[in-house]
Amino acid sequence: MDFSDQRLSYEKGQLDQQSVPESPFELFHSWMNDAIEQKVQEPYAMSLATCGTDMKPSVRIVLMREITETGIVFYTNYQSAKGQDIAENPNAEVLFFWHELERQVRISGSIAKIDADKSAAYFQKRPHDSQVGAWVSQPQSGEVANREVMEQTFEQLQADYPENKEVPTPEFWGGYEITIDEIEFWQGRANRMHDRIVYTCDSDDSSWITKRLLP
């Protein structure tokens, strides 16, 4: 399959370095709200890249569940492949891509578990069957003989924890926060003359330095 002749001209917007806010969080909030208003499907979905001591990068889609004052939060199984990578190398990068807006945002920074009580509070907000499903994926990414084994485990857990019974929060499940060190905003432009503005956190005073990158 040859896609070398397939291309689009991006002409929906622009990004001017002189008019961006001092804080990247203000711009990130604005772009996220634009994506929501344009009815982008799951605009909070992001590609998460991690790399353990084996030096082999891994990437997968996860869902951002919160924007904090310092970063972003997502939830997962701590014993998953991504959890193992994070334990070995607490640095990560995520990518949001909103095709409808011809925009992408790259975020990189350090990553750490959030408070267990906060994880538990979020877990109890999830739909009941999603809570049950979290217990099925143990260990997440582990090999399973077939789907029937998964289904049987799920049905047994549903019987153990009916709708009127609280599903306990697994100790192996919870949230991570990526504290942002650098965030790049990309706006597609015609003729591949894309706008790229990157914010870098100054470690001395936590202020943000902006610069334009070549496309």
Rank of each mutant, 00 (worst) to 15 (best):
residue 112 A to Y: 01
residue 120 A to V: 04
residue 53 T to Q: 15
residue 70 T to M: 02
residue 185 F to W: 04
residue 122 Y to T: 06
residue 23 S to W: 09
residue 19 S to N: 11
residue 215 P to D: 12
residue 98 W to E: 00
residue 92 A to H: 01
residue 207 S to C: 09
residue 111 I to A: 00
residue 35 A to M: 11
residue 3 F to S: 11
residue 1 M to N: 13
residue 72 I to E: 00
residue 194 H to E: 03
residue 153 T to Q: 13
residue 36 I to C: 06
residue 214 L to W: 10
residue 126 R to S: 11
residue 56 K to N: 10
residue 66 E to I: 01
residue 203 S to W: 09
residue 95 L to T: 03
residue 172 F to K: 08
residue 6 Q to N: 12
residue 153 T to P: 01
residue 144 V to D: 05
residue 89 N to A: 03
residue 55 M to R: 12
residue 162 P to T: 04
residue 35 A to K: 11
residue 5 D to T: 10
residue 6 Q to M: 14
residue 134 A to K: 11
residue 29 H to P: 00
residue 71 G to A: 02
residue 152 Q to Y: 08
residue 148 E to R: 12
residue 61 I to W: 06
residue 16 D to K: 15
residue 128 H to C: 09
residue 3 F to E: 10
residue 119 S to N: 05
residue 147 R to C: 02
residue 98 W to C: 00
residue 146 N to W: 12
residue 173 W to P: 08
residue 199 Y to L: 01
residue 199 Y to M: 01
residue 171 E to K: 14
residue 82 K to V: 05
residue 142 G to F: 01
residue 18 Q to G: 08
residue 94 V to T: 12
residue 211 K to S: 11
residue 68 T to S: 13
residue 164 N to W: 09
residue 39 K to N: 12
residue 116 A to N: 06
residue 113 K to A: 08
residue 210 T to K: 14
residue 10 Y to R: 14
residue 42 E to C: 05
residue 116 A to P: 00
residue 175 G to I: 04
residue 206 S to E: 00
residue 88 E to Y: 01
residue 71 G to C: 03
residue 49 A to Q: 07
residue 59 V to N: 15
residue 156 Q to W: 05
residue 108 S to A: 13
residue 136 V to W: 01
residue 168 P to S: 06
residue 7 R to C: 10
residue 174 G to D: 07
residue 148 E to L: 14
residue 140 Q to W: 05
residue 148 E to A: 15
residue 165 K to V: 14
residue 119 S to T: 04
residue 82 K to Y: 04
residue 191 N to Y: 14
residue 117 D to S: 15
residue 186 W to V: 07
residue 115 D to K: 11
residue 108 S to M: 15
residue 141 S to I: 05
residue 100 E to N: 12
residue 32 M to L: 13
residue 75 Y to E: 11
residue 173 W to A: 08
residue 71 G to F: 02
residue 73 V to M: 08
residue 34 D to N: 08
residue 60 R to C: 03
residue 142 G to Q: 02
